[in-house]
Write a protein that binds this DNA or RNA. Structure first.
Length: 477
RNA sequence: GCCUCCAUAGCUCAGCUGGUUAGAGCGGCGGACUGUUAAUCCGUAGGUCCAAGGUUCAAGUCCUUGUGGGGGCGCCA
């Protein structure tokens, strides 16, 4: 008989049917009740074994973590706490989990401990919920873009251009590091490397996505991205997944509309499809908040935060207006900020972003039209010649979740900007060609996928929303 | 990269201004009970107090260095 999944059995409740389930033991109570999980849902199915007729040797091996298969009949539960249960007539142990050595117990473990056993942490309620939600978000993103007429473009992971200026890069090479081939002048001879030139892991697929957008109209990328920055925070990874839509004939307002619609779509998708997991994560979130000091505590539960995102328009304002608000804010006047805002042109610190989002507007904020000096070369210059058509979407708790812009489509303006910022024009001839031939206004943005998962699951550390986090000094598993 | 905090049983943690044999809960093992819900009750075993130096009559506790980890900041998504 084919095994069925617990999620399906709990949904359809085929009473009196003979069924088979396969999964892992969460707890074994009273030598009689197995709480069994098969990953299909956060809920467990209670398997009732007859301790009189079941071989004691089998009973002894039913421990937390063991993989088992249960054959039996689904019946209404006699106990409280579940509506149906499986009365087993046969139990097979597929794989034991020696309770003396198995690190997971039916109790609360710290996130730090679970991070050190990342190969086993999928088996906990929290990580089961996180990875089901992560999947649902990824699926919803593909569905949203597909429904909107976008094409999923696979941009390269290995890139030769280091001109993007998005951060430090990881080198890709097959050269023998013990005897690197040198040229006469003392520089490394990359002609002998695999690609016969210097190559790195991508820090962004944007430039390539622009090429696709200027033919296919609407494209998006969704792939791994690498930054060799020595960033040690709860919101940074060396390897993370990024979504980068790029749209032709699109200005900054359209771009903001798209980003806001996408975020609302995926959040409401998950609210609809991941009920049980979100309910669990919500409880977890609320408990964690209660343990924090009062002024750091979130006013809302996780579910309230998610509902709020879907129901309210994001606040849109220019950088210039944001500076005015910040300059006149209480913490600025009382010099409570670590970095006091003195004048226009200053880069916003995360304390300022947090003030705007969490204190002043109390909703997601989209900041636009930043000073050109603090933004990338490819952003479209405004008529004031001082600001560019950039936008950052700031979310409560995690800060910047989206960074995007309208792209500079005018060849002369782009070249001038590249010269000013020492971007090698020659190397990026292919990028400039799109401005030479059939250029048009276009725009796009980058969404940090793990930051989105962080927001939706309420997990406070980004290392707990990706299976095997890569951070400075850590590439385990 | 900078600033901070932490490391005690398999896990979560307590251990006061340095002072005798380092504690609890969970988990393990043995038993009792049996429709339980992280089951309960009784008993029991379990420790290189992260490592290496140092101060002291005496170090889990103080100092130095190292290792591992957390949090904050910067860089960003």
């Amino acid at each position: 008989m084919k095994a069925r999944r617990i999620a399906e059995l709990l949904r359809t409740q085929p009473i009196d049917e003979q069924v088979v389930i396969q999964g892992w033991v969460r707890t074994f109570r009273n030598n009689q009740f197995i709480a069994m999980s098969d990953g299909s849902t956060i809920k467990t199915l209670q398997v009732v074994v007859d301790r009189e007729t079941t071989d004691p040797e089998i009973l002894k091996r039913i421990n937390t973590g063991a993989a088992i298969e249960a054959h039996g009949t689904l019946v209404p539960s006699q106990g409280r706490g579940q509506s149906v249960e499986l009365v087993a007539d046969d139990i097979t142990i597929h794989g034991e989990a020696d309770p003396e050595k198995y690190p997971l117990q039916p109790k609360r473990h710290s996130m730090e401990f679970l991070r050190e056993i990342a190969h086993l942490r999928f088996r906990t309620n929290t990580f089961g919920a996180v990875f089901r939600v992560r999947h649902a978000l990824a699926f919803a993103i593909h569905k949203f873009f597909n429904d909107e007429g976008f094409y999923y473009l696979h941009t390269p992971v290995i890139t030769a251009s280091d001109a993007e200026g998005a951060g430090e890069m990881f080198r890709v090479t097959t050269l023998d590091l013990h005897k690197v081939p040198m040229k006469e002048q003392g520089s490394i001879d990359f002609k002998q490397d695999f690609f016969e030139r210097e190559t790195n892991l991508t820090v962004s697929g944007q430039l390539e996505a622009e090429l696709g957008a200027l033919a296919l109209g609407k494209v998006y990328t969704f792939g791994p991205t690498f930054r060799a920055e020595n960033s040690n925070t709860s919101r940074h990874l060396a390897e993370f997944w990024m979504i980068e839509p790029e749209v032709a004939f699109c200005d900054l307002d359209d771009n903001m509309d798209l980003a806001e619609a996408m975020l609302k779509y995926v959040v409401s998708y998950v609210i609809r499809e991941c009920n049980d997991d979100l309910a669990f994560l919500n409880d977890r979130f609320v408990k964690e908040e209660q343990s924090k000091p009062k002024q750091e505590r979130s006013e809302w539960s996780l579910l309230e935060k998610l509902a709020f995102i879907v129901e309210h328009d994001f606040e849109r304002l220019t950088y210039t207006r944001a500076i005015d608000i910040l300059r006149n804010s209480k913490p600025n006047r009382k010099k409570k900020f670590n970095y006091v805002i003195e004048e226009w042109g200053a880069d916003l610190q995360s304390e300022h972003e947090r003030y705007l989002v969490e204190k002043h507007f109390k909703k997601p904020v989209i900041l636009t039209d930043y000073p050109k000096d603090i933004k990338a070369f490819y952003m479209r210059m405004n008529d004031d010649d001082k600001t560019v058509r950039a936008m950052d979407i700031l979310f409560p708790g995690i800060g910047e979740i989206v960074g995007g812009s309208q792209r500079e489509e005018r060849l002369d303006a782009l070249k001038a900007r590249m010269a000013e910022m020492d971007i090698p024009v020659k190397e990026l001839y292919w990028y400039l060609d799109t401005r030479k031939f059939g250029t048009c206004p276009h725009a796009g943005y980058g969404l940090g996928f793990e930051r989105l998962v962080q927001f939706v699951t309420g997990m406070s550390n980004i290392r707990d929303v990706i299976a095997f986090p890569r951070t400075p000094g850590n590439a385990n598993f």
